[in-house]
Design a binder for these strands. Structure first.
Lengths: 245, 245
DNA sequence: ACTTTTTCTTACCCGTGGGTAACATATCGG
DNA sequence: CCGATATGTTACCCACGGGTAAGAAAAAGT
């Protein structure tokens, strides 16, 4: 018979029922976040009790208070995990070169993929009003940074000629909205893989913006490649995402 | 001489503090919904108490139970108001003619406008998990109808040649996502009017799909482009209708 | 071994807010 | 004017769940 404690379905907890509990503190902390984010997404923050979170980890509620100040802090930390993912994506894109359109496409692709992860989805499915005013402020700032990045890539693309003139603010809203919505409808057991979604959205959300979008038009390189060069001469190998579709 | 009780700021309640309370039942019921939807959007369903809703209407909590079975039914009825708005829009579009693309544009335009209303926003900002299983089922069905309509217009447009071949499912997700997101960021006191948003989104979300997007391609303009320019008073560069370039 | 510190459990508190019972007061048909 | 019916009010109940206190049980230090 299975006298050994039955392993929980997925992402096994560091606290096995009666076993060695010698993991590092940070690992446990993160395990709490993984369990919590999953439950919060499944059932919604307000319907999840700390007892449930604890139970899923084979511990009891007060034990959670060794790692977090309270429920809202757990929520915030989950949210922050997602924000960090996005921030690192942005940092990486900024580090690389490319036209505004190329950067935008990279961002769209990576962001779409993130929306299919738990922490990524938490970014758009959690209600910031559940946080303390202080944490909500941090979160708002992070959102602002992300939004600004979208706009920056778009207006940068307009300047360098890779994107047709448009209102960067509304274009960013439209693109970010379509992406954020992924976090609401994506299901792991659905018919679509994250990479399929990311590939398709990268095309769909930028095809209307590109100056050289279809096979038509003069197929010349981006017209008048950046003359308003503010420093970094990123010319190099552009090839604005033309590839595989 | 306004010796009468001072009217509350906006959307005056039928229950004036000590005055005639002789309005029809349905009007009162709807007044409850208007007050509720506003509070739910402002603060979030779980943070709004029935006492608050009642207070805003100059009544007390138990009085609400004359019109609704409970809090969750109020939520559902608010949601339904939004759903009915969308349904009537769809019915009207279906009644009219036009290519798939034309219908899609009408839907995008109307839907964007709805997202800037309280009941419209409630459609995407309320959590269906707060409803009873029965009501949640109704809501899911309504959402399904809306989604189906988007896809139908798109695949219809592909068939009639007004829309370039693409995956209708993902295209619908992208468009609906961008639109739904309006319900999350739109603020009445922001710098953008609903009609500006609707106009811009109508262009932005369909320009990538149209077979005749830019100045080339066939001539069969299905309908005259909406010259409904109501007020183009914002940031200078914005050529909504024209496919110039 | 022994203390000390960290981690976790049992048992409890208590504010909150949806919901109800019982009663009061309009409103209306006649 | 009078009961019947809608409509509101006051006063209360109580389940729920976040949070805490006090102490057991490991881990770690000595």
């Amino acid at each position: 018979m299975d006298s050994a404690p039955p392993a929980p379905p997925s992402s096994p907890s560091p606290w096995l029922p009666f076993e060695s509990r010698r993991r590092a503190r940070d690992e446990k902390r993160e395990a709490v976040l993984r369990a919590a984010v999953q439950l919060f997404l499944e059932q919604g923050y307000h319907r999840v009790t700390l007892n449930e979170v604890a139970e899923r980890l084979n511990i009891t509620k007060p034990a959670l208070y060794n790692y977090f100040r309270g429920k809202d802090e757990i929520l915030f930390e989950c949210w922050s995990m997602g924000a960090e993912l996005v921030d690192s994506v942005i940092t990486e894109i900024n580090a690389g070169g490319g036209s505004g359109l190329a950067k935008l496409r990279k961002l769209v692709h990576a962001y779409a993929g993130l929306m299919a992860t738990d922490f990524g989805a938490s970014l758009v499915r959690f209600d910031l009003r559940d946080l303390t005013e202080r944490n909500a402020g941090v979160a708002r700032a992070a959102k602002k940074r992300i939004d600004t990045t979208f706009r920056k890539y778009i207006s940068g693309g307009i300047d360098d000629g890779s994107i047709r003139p448009c209102d960067p603010k509304l274009a960013a809203f439209a693109i970010a909205g379509a992406l954020n919505w992924i976090g609401h409808w994506y299901r792991r057991d659905g018919g679509l893989s994250p990479s399929e979604i990311a590939d398709e959205f990268t095309v769909r959300l930028t095809e209307g913006l590109a100056t050289e979008g279809r096979q038509q038009m003069t197929k010349k390189t981006p017209r008048a490649p950046q003359r308003r060069n503010s420093g970094r001469a990123t010319t190099g190998k552009k090839r604005t995402g033309g590839g595989t579709r």
